[in-house]
């Protein structure tokens, strides 16, 4: 099934199946609203617990405001709910602790994740936040696959990995930004060292 044909999202009333099923309304931090089936929500441990605790009836869903998911934007949430609808009813995998963990990326998921890496980054974050185990697995697997066949030097570029020197420079810069006096003190210390002084104080 292609992403375009996937059920869900930005819901249009006509798209709702005729049979009486429970749907919930969610709102992203940029005020986009989504209507998601109860079965799809079960893929997310966080949302599942939330709706259980709320104990909404079908009327409540319509009459009360949509449930706000304040730290995920609409574009990301759309992908999340498309994924949940496509995989609704599937068993949630249990982590057996093996490394490397064996995860296959199904065709639907591969197409869904044919996105820029900024959005992939947000998708991973959202999958973890909403505790959607298999979505986290496949999205992280896509990141892990980027390493395959790469030389260490290529890997540094692919994952934008700083060298030790760059890490240290960033750490120093962060410290200095926190304490504007730090640089002055360090310069004074270096100057005294150059002059052959044994003690700073």
């Amino acid at each position: 099934m292609s992403v375009e044909n996937a059920p869900v999202v930005d819901v249009d009333e006509a798209a709702i199946p005729v049979e009486k099923k429970m749907y919930y309304r969610f709102e992203s931090n940029d005020k986009k609203e989504f209507r998601v089936s109860e079965l799809a929500i079960q893929q997310s441990e966080t949302l599942n617990r939330l709706v259980e605790a709320m104990g909404y009836t079908s009327e409540d869903v319509e009459n009360k405001p949509a449930i706000a998911i304040e730290n995920i934007d609409g574009k990301t949430l759309k992908l999340v709910f498309q994924w949940c609808e496509h995989h609704k009813g599937e068993a949630i995998p249990v982590d057996d602790g093996s490394v490397p963990k064996i995860v296959e990326i199904p065709e639907f998921d591969a197409k869904l994740m044919d996105i820029d890496n900024g959005l992939l980054f947000k998708l991973i974050w959202a999958a973890d936040y909403l505790n959607i185990v298999q979505l986290l697995n496949v999205s992280c697997k896509k990141v892990a696959n980027m390493a395959q066949g790469k030389t260490p030097a290529q890997l540094r570029r692919v994952y934008l990995l700083p060298s030790d020197e760059e890490d240290e420079a960033a750490k120093r810069a962060a410290q200095e930004a926190q304490d504007p006096r730090a640089r002055e003190v360090e310069e004074e210390f270096e100057e005294r060292k150059r002059q052959g002084g044994n003690s700073f104080f």
Partner: peptide, 21 residues
Amino acid sequence: VSFPLLKLPIDELLHAMRLME
């Protein structure tokens, strides 16, 4: 293609690394 691996929160970073060869 590049991806800022170390910018992932630690749990997600370790999750992605567990999936690497």
